[in-house]
Simulated scan of single mutants.
Amino acid sequence: MKVPGCILCLSLTAAPVMADPMTGKAAAKQMYRGEGAVVQMLDGAGLSQADATALTMVGTGQPWYGAIAISPDEGLMVEATVAAVNHHTVAAAETAARKGCEAKRKGKAACVVVAHLLPKGWKPADLTLSQDATAALRKDYKTPGALAISPTTGSFALTKGEAAGDLAVQTCNEKAGAKDCILAVQD
C-alpha cells in the first residue's frame, strides 16, 4: 500500500506524550493483536516495483512500529539500508532508521524513509506501543502495576506493586540508556 506524500504524517508522527497514564484496561482496548507488520510504501521513494516488493516481503515479518530508510544514491541492497523496528511510534522509528542509514551511507544524497511498518488495522490512538510492549501488557500486566516507555528507543518496563510507577520509570531508563521514559499505564 502506498501512502501519498505526507497525508498521514501528522497522525503517524505524534509521540506518546501523556499528561496522565492510562489504566491497564483502557490501554488494553487500544492495543493491536497479532504479530508482524503491514508495510506502507511511501510515495516518492523512487523504488522499482521489484525493490518495493522485496521490502514488503521483508517488512511484513518485522515488529511494528517501524520505518525503513535507504541511501538513494546507493540502492536497496547495501549496508546503508536500515530498518528500525519495535518502537512505540512511527516517528521514533523514522528517526532511528535515518540515523542508522546516515551513519552507513556512502552516497551524497541524504537518507530517506521509504516505508512504514504498522500493525494490521492501524488507526490513530491515544497510546501506541511497540509490538513487544503490547504483548507484555496483554500477557503480564497486573494491578497494582505500571508500564513505562521510552519514546525514543522503544524500550519499556513493566512492574508490579504499590511503588510500580517509580520503579517502571527507573527500570525503563536503565534499559533504554536514556532518561526519557514516561509512565504510560498505571493502576
Rank of each mutant, 00 (worst) to 15 (best):
residue 32 Y to T: 15
residue 130 S to Y: 05
residue 29 K to S: 14
residue 16 P to I: 09
residue 96 A to L: 12
residue 99 K to Y: 02
residue 28 A to K: 14
residue 136 A to K: 07
residue 150 S to R: 00
residue 87 H to A: 07
residue 173 N to C: 06
residue 145 G to N: 14
residue 169 V to K: 11
residue 60 T to L: 02
residue 18 M to Q: 12
residue 36 G to V: 03
residue 85 V to H: 02
residue 59 G to N: 04
residue 117 L to Y: 07
residue 20 D to Q: 15
residue 178 A to E: 15
residue 13 T to M: 07
residue 79 E to M: 11
residue 125 A to V: 13
residue 174 E to D: 14
residue 156 F to W: 11
residue 74 E to P: 08
residue 110 A to I: 00
residue 2 K to G: 11
residue 21 P to C: 01
residue 138 R to N: 10
residue 76 L to K: 09
residue 9 C to F: 04
residue 17 V to W: 03
residue 119 P to S: 12
residue 59 G to Y: 10
residue 72 P to R: 08
residue 42 L to H: 04
residue 175 K to R: 15
residue 168 A to F: 05
residue 66 G to I: 10
residue 89 T to F: 01
residue 66 G to H: 09
residue 30 Q to D: 05
residue 124 P to V: 05
residue 151 P to I: 05
residue 126 D to M: 04
residue 64 W to G: 08
residue 177 G to S: 00
residue 21 P to F: 06
residue 2 K to I: 13
residue 16 P to F: 07
residue 8 L to E: 10
residue 99 K to G: 00
residue 67 A to N: 02
residue 123 K to Y: 01
residue 150 S to T: 02
residue 146 A to P: 03
residue 6 C to L: 10
residue 125 A to L: 01
residue 177 G to Q: 02
residue 90 V to G: 03
residue 14 A to Y: 08
residue 125 A to G: 07
residue 51 D to S: 14
residue 1 M to V: 15
residue 58 V to Q: 15
residue 156 F to R: 06
residue 33 R to L: 14
residue 169 V to F: 03
residue 21 P to E: 09
residue 114 V to L: 00
residue 168 A to P: 11
residue 59 G to M: 03
residue 113 V to L: 10
residue 44 G to V: 08
residue 6 C to R: 07
residue 37 A to T: 06
residue 61 G to D: 10
residue 104 K to C: 00
residue 80 A to S: 15
residue 89 T to Y: 01
residue 8 L to T: 09
residue 56 T to G: 13
residue 5 G to K: 07
residue 148 A to Y: 08
residue 176 A to D: 03
residue 161 G to H: 10
residue 102 E to C: 01
